[in-house]
Design a protein around this nucleic acid. Structure first.
Lengths: 199, 199
DNA sequence: CCTACCGATCGGTAGG
DNA sequence: CCTACCGATCGGTAGG
């Protein structure tokens, strides 16, 4: 074992937080995972909460960057929503430890840090709202949509993935993205109500 | 304060578990909430985990009973799904403490108890699957649905409610049920694909 | 990064 | 339901 980097410590922490939860993970557990003693972890970080803040913030950044990529690569609301969904799923499945901590351990943060991450999440949610709003404006999505609720519903499906998804199961990442997009869009897409267009 | 009943203890426990989480709630906290000392709680229960088991099992029973009522009162897949959704929302919003613990603290249960509740949840999920399956069979829902995933998606939206819903907000319980049913059904309802029926 | 340790808190118990 | 207590574990630190 070579010398540990701060990076290694954070990575191990996110793994243990995801498995056992923040409060059930002791600094001694973390030390053991790293091959050092509990007290020695403090050579790398100044508190246990600092580790949680770091892990949670990383997940938040990953989602934010994925959204940016999704939006620059697509034009129409349909394409953008599709890209947002696929991007979100990618983060959830490829960074499970950080994401689980991000989604489930925010309550363990103290006041100021919790406010930060709540704001970060709302900013991300606002991206979903604005895409849906644009889609309503141009007739892609239902005019009677409650935009706020629709965004929450889509994100509910996306964020629940970490609770049930099995990497070795029958559904791969691409199929999941397609299924969720279909579920969401049939829920919000405007279906032709009048006589059909000629074909 | 009159003499405490076991009922009072469990109720207080579910409240504290919901607010602070199971591991962050100490038997001393629980005692304080009840106006007694931590050690005195053991006059009512034999362990902390027993409290968790009880709270979680209560929530599970509430969902099961709600599903039973929903199914006996409705006939078609559409009506049944609508009733299931409304029933689920009712439990989530009217028994928030138990439900939060049920949804978020199952990992704190030891092996055998966790297996029990996982089985209980799957049984409940199976009800959703069977309704959706019946709806696919009779043409109400899309024939190309992945039934397993569809059930998960609907339940994802329903179970996420406790994470964001504000009782004093602009959306009341009935409106929420209607919005979620609309979101879900437009996602799974078969829309006419061929020429329209004459009207 | 280890040694050796601190005060605080935990779930739980004997005896009343 | 209280008194008084147990061993275990916790986050964190001084000094090397």
């Amino acid at each position: 074992m070579s010398r540990l980097r701060r990076e290694d410590v954070i990575e191990a922490a996110s793994r243990l937080f995801a498995i056992h939860g923040y409060h059930r993970t002791s600094m001694r557990d973390l030390g053991t995972e790293l091959g050092i003693l509990g007290g020695s972890v403090y050579a790398h970080v100044s508190s246990k909460e600092e580790l949680l803040v770091e892990v949670v913030h990383r997940a938040g950044s990953l989602f934010g960057e994925a959204a940016e990529r999704a939006l620059t690569g697509s034009q129409t609301p349909t394409e953008q929503l599709k890209a947002l969904i696929a991007g979100h799923i990618g983060i959830v499945l490829n960074h499970r430890d950080e994401v689980q901590t991000f989604l489930n351990e925010a309550a363990a943060l103290d006041g100021a840090h919790r406010d930060d991450i709540v704001a970060e999440r709302d900013q991300y949610e606002a991206i979903f709202r604005s895409i849906i709003k644009a889609g309503v404006a141009d007739g892609t999505f239902r005019a009677d949509l409650d935009i706020e609720l629709a965004a929450i519903f889509v994100l509910s499906v996306l964020n629940a993935i970490e609770r049930w998804y099995q990497p070795d199961g029958r559904v791969d990442q691409a199929a999941l993205a397609s299924e969720i997009y279909l579920f969401a869009s049939r829920g919000i897409s405007q279906e032709p109500k009048g006589p059909r267009q000629p074909y």
